[in-house]
């Protein structure tokens, strides 16, 4: 079963998201901050990363995504945002933001699973 890493500093969101994915049969690992997040991704090599954009700093998630790409980690990234337009950061799927899709919180379980399945399928086709 695919392994999914969720990196979010909100323990409630982390719990709810991982429960949803686990109940659909995915394996889930979690981290509460960018540093731990980087570590689990490097160690466990998940098939997909779900990343919150705002952690300690408003753009921590964004920088972590860039760091993954710089380190040649091409795992698909689904980025969580709670306000799509935040201070000074206007996101769209441009090359500047090396993520594969965005979702705005809150997200329903079905939607989350849909996004995850779609991204995993795309990654599979690329191989």
């Amino acid at each position: 079963m695919p392994l999914i890493a969720i990196i979010d500093d909100d323990p409630d969101i982390l719990d709810a998201s991982s429960l949803v994915l686990k109940s659909k049969g995915f394996d889930v690992i979690t981290a509460l901050n960018p540093n731990d997040g980087f570590k689990i991704v490097v160690e466990k090599k998940p098939d997909l990363i779900i990343l919150d954009v705002m952690m300690d700093e408003p753009d921590d998630g964004f920088f972590l995504a860039q760091k993954f790409r710089k380190e040649k980690i091409q795992t698909p990234i689904l980025m969580y945002t709670s306000v799509s337009k935040t201070i000074g950061l206007d996101f769209d799927k441009s090359e500047m933001v090396p993520v594969d899709d965005f979702v705005e919180k809150p997200i329903s379980p079905d939607e989350l699973v849909d996004k995850v399945v779609t991204l995993l399928k795309k990654a599979e086709e690329r191989k």
């Binding site: 909100d10 409630d12 969101i13 709810a16 998201s17 429960l19 949803v20 109940s23 705002m54 709670s82 306000v83 935040t86 919180k105 809150p106 997200i107 329903s108 379980p109």
Partner: peptide, 24 residues
Amino acid sequence: AHELKTPLAAVQGFINIILDDSIS
């Protein structure tokens, strides 16, 4: 908006799980 939405998203996440029959 961000500060208001963050706790709302967490609460909604929990409620979604409780309401979803497919998640036990």
